[in-house]
Design a protein around this nucleic acid. Structure first.
Length: 437
DNA sequence: TCTGGGGTCCTAGGACCC
DNA sequence: TCTGGGGTCCTAGGACCC
């Protein structure tokens, strides 16, 4: 067996470093139960706006409801289920409080997603007068007590191991995996549980007879280098207790890309309709870019066919811009080339890339200064109006077709918005008549 | 019952240049 | 004129995550 020789390498000093992973259990559903005590102990589901289950409370899971299940099926399985539209604003507030509690123990906290975070506990035993387990326990208890949700926590030597550890006992578990227990942990973990292994990698590794995380970690470095590319090699090192992935405390202030897609039903082959959808995607993406004071230098558009095959093309802008009025005309040619009249499309998408701070775009040295300035001011005014009266209140003529065709947005507007949202957000989500300039 | 939306990073292969 | 061989940069798409 190749790993007899390697096995020694897997035995590592107990705590060369202690990385904590924290994962809120059924986060969206738990938030709802925390905010609305009347939902406690009941099967709560969020995702009404999407038509599929985003999150299911443990009561709902006990009845067989899982993430991604269509809501019509939920109603069949479990007619008493409480189905809610996701309320991201409220969840974000609870999420923020969760990370603030984590930061009471260490400044090295990464907000990995709305419901998951990492923290580096290395070296904190003496200053906090506690074992790593004690620190993790206090953090977990504080969150559960103060926010009225439950979290699962894992502590081990690397992010990947900590994540596996946290997955071992859910909900509300606390799992410590020091160096000498890594092997036991890996033996219990089937390949798909490993962070970073998706369907493709798992089925590839299975062809070599690998079944558990241990089978993978126990292979020789040479074998790994021959058979896997960069991500696979990094995961191998992480599973052996080496820190490859650092804790990123920066937070998500800055984007590599901003994308907007919207699926429409039924799928369509109507060129004008698709163009209108694309224009709408572009407007939405630009609104977000402006909110973060970013402007793309490149714009990627794509059309996704009914069978999920998509084709896209990147368009380089001669200068960064976050004005759809300026960008849209540049997309027309490429769109025409991508579009095939004999195909049915299920969605269009826009991705803004090569983002840079948008001050730069305003003091352009290339001609058109006046035009740019006017556009910038016009776009600013549109943002103000839309902020007051609702997104897309003012929009481009190109996207008018969406409403004309009578296939407007299908989002279900719930009256619950009115209860939980603050004034300005609440207005944004109301059905306000639209007009066009 | 076909499968929402928003991200990140990696890579093969083409374009282009010397 | 035709050819090879190398490098770099870019792009389209894949894989993965929550």
């Amino acid at each position: 067996m190749p790993f007899q020789k390697q096995k020694r390498n897997l035995i590592i000093r107990s705590w060369p470093q202690a990385i904590l992973h924290l994962d809120a259990d059924a986060f969206f559903a738990s938030c709802e139960q925390s905010l609305h005590p009347e939902y406690r102990g009941k099967p709560v589901i969020t995702g009404a706006e999407r038509g599929i289950v985003s999150a299911a409370s443990y009561e709902a899971k006990a009845l067989g409801i899982q993430r991604g299940v269509p809501l019509w099926e939920v109603k069949k399985i479990c007619p008493q289920a409480i189905i809610l539209a996701s309320d991201y604003e409220s969840y974000s507030l609870i999420s923020k409080r969760m990370f603030d509690i984590m930061r009471r123990f260490t400044p090295t906290v990464e907000e990995y997603s709305i419901d998951e975070g990492f923290a580096d506990l290395t070296g904190l035993r003496r200053p906090l007068h506690s074992s790593y387990e004690g620190i993790a326990r206090q953090m977990k208890d504080a969150i559960e007590r103060e926010l009225d949700i439950t979290v699962s926590v894992g502590v081990s030597l690397s992010k990947s191991l900590a994540k596996l550890a946290a997955n071992l006992n859910k909900p509300s578990g606390l799992t410590m995996v020091p160096g000498r227990q890594i092997e036991d942990l890996l033996h219990q973990m089937p390949l798909p549980e490993v962070w970073g292994f998706g369907k493709a990698t798992v089925s590839y590794l299975q062809k070599f007879g690998l079944k558990t995380a241990y089978d993978f970690a126990a292979h020789s470095e040479q074998w790994i280098n021959e058979h896997l590319d960069k991500p696979g090699r990094e995961i191998w090192r992480e599973l052996r207790g080496e820190v490859v992935y650092q804790i990123n405390t920066e937070g998500h202030t800055d984007y590599q890309s901003i994308s907007k897609v919207k699926t429409f039903t039924p799928p369509s082959a109507d060129k004008q309709y698709l163009w209108a959808q694309l224009a709408r995607n572009l407007e939405s993406a630009c609104i977000k870019a402006r909110r973060y004071h970013l402007a793309p230098t490149k714009v990627l558009i794509y059309l996704r066919e009914h069978n999920f095959i998509s084709h896209g093309r990147e368009i380089s802008l001669s200068r960064a811009s976050n004005s759809p009025l300026l960008i849209l005309p540049l997309l027309a040619d490429v769109f025409s080339k991508l579009y095939k009249s004999d195909k049915l499309y299920r969605c269009t998408g826009v991705v803004l890339v090569g983002l840079q701070p948008d001050e730069k775009t305003q003091e352009s040295l290339f001609g058109d200064c006046l035009k740019i300035d006017k556009l910038t001011r016009a776009t600013g005014a549109i943002d103000t109006i839309n902020g007051k009266f609702g997104k897309h209140t003012i929009h481009q003529c190109s996207s008018l077709m969406i409403n004309k065709a009578g296939r407007g947005d299908r989002e279900k507007k719930s009256t619950r918005w009115q209860q939980t949202l603050r004034g300005e957000d609440y207005r944004r989500h109301l059905n306000i008549p639209r007009w066009t300039v």
